[in-house]
Amino acid sequence: MMRSLWALLHHDLRISLRQGNASTSVVVFFVLAVTLFPLGVGPEPQVLARIASGVVWAAALLAAMISLDRLFQADFEDGVLEQLCLAPTPLPAAVLAKALAHWLLTGLPLTLIAPVLAMALQMEGAGVVPLILGLALGTPVLSLVGAIGAGLTIGIRRGSVLLSLLVLPLFLPILIFGVGAVEAAINGLSARPHLLILGAMLLAAIVLAPLATAAALRANTE
């Protein structure tokens, strides 16, 4: 089964890289969204430093979300999803591989570029490591929980709007604890409890989200 999942991961990454837009558009959106804030609230360093963690996290959530609607849509339209449903490899495992591919193409670049944007917003140095760790734990949850929404909305015209309404509320706990980790470190407290909760969310999402997504996909391929 691992060989199948490796093949699926490889296949998804190859398609994305061949089409050459997924990662780039997400990262560009992220950078643009973050740079809107200094233009909007003014360039005072104290103000920017105060809002930096929240801005970076909120922009990361939105950036991760805009790529979600394509997660299963193409597979649904060209019949690959039907074939994945019929293969001996369990569908939840296939969902996990696809979510991992999505994270590698969106969450990982966001995590890597976030510290640069945080520095540009004058965030204090103490917050950088918790920001990276928080995003590294939090963005896979976005891909996994987002997959449930993507699975529920395939085949719906203009499903991406509905998808946002479905999954954004579910992203709120990630935002709260992700920003909490950064704020705690900046204020001289330990970021560890916040990161542990994000880690717990990730573990729960790895177990539960593929099952929910597979059920949604099966219902929608009927």
Binding site: S4, A7, I15, D78, V80, P88, T89
Partner: peptide, 30 residues
């Protein structure tokens, strides 16, 4: 898990070559 199904959709990815498409299904079905 014991079925090969060919429906109205061909399940072929337009972005990839024929070799890449079929090699994927070969590896996926093991």
């Amino acid at each position: 898990g014991r079925v090969s199904y060919v429906g109205h959709l061909d399940a072929i990815k337009a972005a990839l070559t024929l070799r890449e498409n079929l090699a994927f299904w070969l590896a996926y079905r093991g």
